[in-house]
């Protein structure tokens, strides 16, 4: 291993406790997509203390931020995520199901580690730039809402990533490997129906059921499935079924669709 890389590994080993503390704190916060206020604030605080130039709320997303060091080019981006998943609160280090916070969220996709590993990398690259005096910039991007919200796609709409010479990131998994291949394009859209409430027994003719609309939409989509390419995916969740009273015509209902269409042949 060359001396630069050896030095980078040493920087990370020396700062290991600080870095894993960040991972454990974000694990405890377990904040859902686009609500990662404490997690983003912790990263911004730590990165400022480490000498990075931090910009919060980039691309109009409150929990997105950038933290850069160095000047000129090349510009190397390191991507971080820190959102959790609902319903997965779990005590650490146990091999049986035991919620830490009843009904709470948990880092079931390991994004507490994702952000902290990227922090380790950014810290080591900053040290490298400082010690070598090489031109170049390392930019740590805080990317919220990977599980829902897709902040990086909103950031892409604003052209953010075009300013980089390369982007590097990682994801916790069960193997040590380089990720290759493509992934599915995907769109999430919510359909909100509004009808008219009425007494379901005495005046059903005056009501207009939004729940019926959701049911009809879902049935239509079921028929659509037969005619899709087999590698497309459609998933749904009824996020509002209009209430719990069968004797009231449901005046509002919502269904959330996630559609992964095939855009083009695999490259």
């Amino acid at each position: 291993m060359d001396s630069y890389k050896k030095a980078a590994c040493d920087v990370i080993d020396t700062a290991a406790e600080m870095i894993t503390d960040v991972s454990h704190s974000v694990w405890e916060y377990a904040e859902l997509s686009l609500k990662e206020n404490m997690s983003a604030a912790l990263y911004c605080k730590v990165l400022r203390q480490l000498g990075f130039d931090v910009e919060e709320g980039i691309c109009g997303i409150p929990t997105a931020f950038s933290a850069s060091f160095g000047s000129g080019s090349p510009r190397i981006g390191i991507l971080a995520e820190y959102d959790a998943l609902s319903g997965l609160s779990q005590r650490a280090g146990t091999a049986h199901r035991e919620e830490l916070v009843p009904g709470g969220a948990g880092h079931g996709c390991g994004h507490n580690m994702l952000g902290a590993g990227s922090l380790a990398a950014a810290l080591a690259v900053k040290d490298h730039l400082e010690k070598t005096g090489r031109p170049g910039r390392v930019i740590f991007y805080g990317c919220p809402g990977e599980e829902g919200g897709a902040a990086k796609a909103f950031m892409a709409r604003d052209g953010l990533w075009r300013s980089l010479d390369a982007a590097l990131t990682w994801h916790p998994g069960s193997a040590n490997c380089v990720i290759t291949g493509s992934s599915l394009a995907c769109i999430q859209k919510e359909y909100i129906f509004r009808g008219v409430a009425s007494h379901a027994a005495s005046s059903p003719h005056l009501g207009r059921s939004a729940l019926d609309a959701v049911q009809l939409m879902n049935m239509g989509v079921e028929f659509l499935r037969e005619h899709m390419p087999s590698d497309c995916r459609i998933h749904y969740a009824i996020t509002d079924a209009g209430g719990v009273s069968p004797n009231v015509v449901q005046p509002s209902a919502r269904v959330l669709y996630m559609v992964a269409p095939r855009r083009s042949a695999p490259r």
Partner: peptide, 26 residues
């Protein structure tokens, strides 16, 4: 180039700049 099931917004980054991701055994 094989398409794997699942989606990520890292995809959008990879359309705008050369991008790479690794997995480690967590």
């Amino acid at each position: 180039g094989r398409c794997e099931m699942g989606s990520t917004d890292v995809g959008d980054v990879s359309w705008q700049t050369p991008t790479v991701q690794v997995n480690t055994a967590a």
